[in-house]
């Protein structure tokens, strides 16, 4: 069953076209990766799904519901959580406060506390730094915090924008493991990555986006073996 469907989406920033008849889909409980160079339109795709920008044409649906007209906060309420590029955690709030605000829309206080505890269990370094200000954390810890913050919100669809950016290989591995754990618990994941190797390792399927539309699609194994992908993104 397709959970997330983008059909023939056009997106313009003023007169510059960012997305050109883009069509992708994500099945329930899949991990789908979006690969491509800078400026290809990957971040625009995520921003459009989470409601930060509106498509000029085409449709974006989640489990049948049209997202294009919803406000960002309603899209979050529907269970779609977007972890933006660059972490963007709240620097002068403590780690714990950051987690709490991830649960802004969660009505049950106990549930928030429970999910926060799960996040601490999953990422023990966060628990150590519980009362520290977010801005004092390292890059990798901030990425964990951003993930934890999303987890407290109980996402049905997780949109990740370049989670591995600027992180050491070991930390990238940890982050990817957490993403797999999240999928095992029933969440669907759409992962935008420049680090194609790490992304294709955990993804089920992937798309290559160029110039705002899909240039290639297939299973992760297919793409990992494709000579063009290897040459352009896997550094062969």
């Amino acid at each position: 069953m397709s959970a997330l469907v983008l059909a023939d989406v056009d997106l313009y920033y003023h007169r510059v076209q960012a997305l050109d008849r883009l069509s992708i889909d994500v099945q329930e409980n899949e991990i789908v990766a979006l690969l491509g160079n800078n400026g290809a339109g990957k971040t625009s795709t995520l921003s459009m799904i989470s409601g930060l920008v509106r498509p000029n044409a085409g449709s974006v649906t989640w489990r049948g519901q049209d997202l294009a007209k919803l406000q960002p906060w309603d899209i979050v309420a529907a269970g779609l959580l977007h972890i933006p590029e660059g972490r963007r955690i709240f620097s002068t709030m403590t780690v714990h406060e950051n987690l709490l605000i991830g649960g802004y829309l969660v009505k049950d206080q106990k549930l928030i506390r429970q999910r926060a505890d799960e996040a601490y269990a999953l990422m023990p370094r966060l628990a150590e730094r519980r009362s520290q200000q977010g801005g004092t954390l390292s890059g990798g810890e901030q990425q964990m915090l951003a993930l934890g913050r999303a987890l407290v919100g109980g996402p049905k669809l997780l949109l990740l924008d370049e989670p591995s950016m600027g992180l050491a290989p070991l930390v990238v591995k940890q982050v990817m493991q957490i993403i797999e754990h999240v999928r095992r618990n029933g969440t669907t994941v759409l992962l935008v990555e420049q680090n194609a190797r790490a992304a294709l390792r955990i993804a089920d399927r992937a798309y290559v986006i160029e110039g705002g539309s899909v240039a290639m699609s297939g299973t992760a194994d297919e793409l990992a073996a494709d000579p063009r992908v290897i040459e352009a993104y896997l550094g062969a």
């Binding site: 397709s2 469907v5 059909a7 023939d8 069509s23 889909d25 044409a57 085409g58 449709s59 049948g64």
Partner: peptide, 18 residues
């Protein structure tokens, strides 16, 4: 349908199953 997408012709603004 086109590709693995769902039913309904996705072209145009009111694409998407109802």
């Amino acid at each position: 349908a086109r590709g693995p997408a769902e039913n309904g012709s996705g072209a145009g603004r009111d694409g998407g199953a109802r």
